[in-house]
């Protein structure tokens, strides 16, 4: 839910380009960081986790307009960098199938990618004092609340306003003119951010709890039968930290 279910042509092109640019930089960083780490096993696990996210994102809870992302679980299982790559892959495939705009892939990857990175870091910190189930549940709720705020921040920052960036039905702006909220456009139409935030936080909170329960149960199961899977994400980073001669815990 915490990614932009916005069709193509609504967010101004400059922000879309910035989204792709930052995502490209993050991907380059991710690829650099996973180059040496666990290379023989990374591809199958990446594929399975990304496919699991894909299934989660395709099964929507129609009543509240929510679908689970499983991005925190991806961060826990893959670590931050492979998790970010998984987020990009999932957004790319979803866009190919018409779910979410193809031009929004960059921004969406940043939002979902932030969930995998934050999820991995928060889970790693919480498991020092809490059991895996409780850690996973708390991680999901806190991470999704943060990433939803990030999504709202992006909408506020881009001053998203349908149609008007390229000259809306009542605008006489030329075709490729880009303006940040011209007064006229602002008066005509824009997304009421406060109202949008109310909707998103209210319905989103229900979804966060569902996703937290689900993730906690799955993590609890892995903790019992394959605890090595939960630690592996941390190990990928630890190996890289050692590679640069820094301390890894």
């Amino acid at each position: 839910m915490s990614h932009l279910h916005i069709p193509d042509g609504i967010i101004p092109p400059l922000w879309l380009a910035l989204g792709f640019l930052v995502t490209g930089l993050m991907l380059a960083l991710a690829l650099r960081n996973v180059r040496d780490a666990d290379s023989a096993r990374r591809l199958p696990r990446l594929g399975i986790v990304a496919a699991l996210m894909l299934i989660g994102m395709m099964a929507e809870i129609a009543v509240i307009g929510y679908h689970i992302n499983l991005s925190v679980l991806a961060g826990i299982l893959l670590g931050p960098w492979l998790g970010f790559i998984a987020a990009f892959l999932v957004n790319l495939i979803l866009a190919l199938f018409g779910h979410g705009g193809i031009t929004v892939i960059g921004l969406n990857s940043l939002i979902i990618g932030s969930e995998t990175i934050l999820g991995w870091a928060v889970f790693r910190a919480l498991t020092r004092n809490l059991n895996p189930r409780a850690s996973a549940a708390l991680t999901v709720v806190s991470t999704l609340a943060l990433s939803t705020t990030l999504m709202l921040g992006i909408i506020a920052l881009t001053q998203t306003q349908p149609a008007l960036q390229f000259g809306g039905p009542e605008s006489d702006a030329p075709l490729f003119q880009f303006e940040l909220l011209p007064d006229k456009a602002q008066a005509i139409s824009q997304i009421d951010l406060a109202r949008f935030a109310q909707f998103v936080y209210f319905f989103g909170a229900i979804g966060w709890i569902l996703e937290a329960v689900f993730t906690a149960l799955v993590v609890g199961f892995f903790a019992r039968v394959r605890p090595d899977l939960l630690a592996s994400g941390a190990r990928v980073v630890a190996a890289k930290e050692n590679h640069f001669g820094t301390r890894a815990d």
């Binding site: 929507e60 307009g65 149609a163 949008f196 319905f203």
Partner: peptide, 22 residues
């Protein structure tokens, strides 16, 4: 995708034309 655009469309001000366009 329209299913997920509901919240977005509900928050749009500026009349039915914008909602239809979304």
């Amino acid at each position: 995708p329209a299913l997920f655009s509901i919240l977005f469309a509900l928050s749009a001000t500026g009349g039915i034309g914008i909602v239809v366009l979304i």
